[in-house]
Amino acid sequence: MTGSHATQSQPAPAAQRAAALETALTARGILPPGFVDEFNDHAEEQWVTRNGAQVVARAWTDSAFRERLLKNGKSAVAELGFGMPEHHRHLVVLENTPDIHNLIVCTLCSCTAYTIIGAAPDWYKDLEYRARVVRESRTALKEMGLDLPASTEIRVWDTTADTRYMVLPVQPPATYGWSPEKLADIVTQESMIGTSRLDDVNTPVKG
């Protein structure tokens, strides 16, 4: 007996297990036909980084909007037509300055304001990022290509409740006067999570 069931006692491939759950929920009449494709199409079309980029571009070009955004993020992004799910009850927007750098993480899982900044990238959900950025913030950022000057204050925000965060990056001076549409083109998801900046602050290489 021993050994003959070796493969039977191994976990089935994840794809098979996912299909099994789909089959069981369909058999119960819980999973409506077409739901999976509709949900994923909606997620991929609606919950995109471009939303947050438009929010940032508007904040850079409209100081009254910027004030409303910093005071109540959720109602300010709603002005631009962007909704948030029920369990994202509050949006806090963290303003970078030349001397202050904000960084978002979810050490306990993977929370992000995904309807605003887009779905969390793989590295954000990986064990390495979750374990390290709270304790080795400057080192981890440097490894990711953001070498902050020693004088820059780092503020890490661990997403542990129904509050969601996004970083308002510093506008690069070279882009002053650009249209909001053109500005939105330069705003990346990384800059709204805080693993990169759009203004050039990397410590110059000594030598």
């Binding site: 050490t107 306990l108 390495e128």
Partner: peptide, 23 residues
Amino acid sequence: HDLGGKQGFGRINYRPEPHDETW
């Protein structure tokens, strides 16, 4: 799951290759 501050993890895989897991 309570990973914040745990030591021994390596570099963050910041530029991963796209993967296609249809499930």
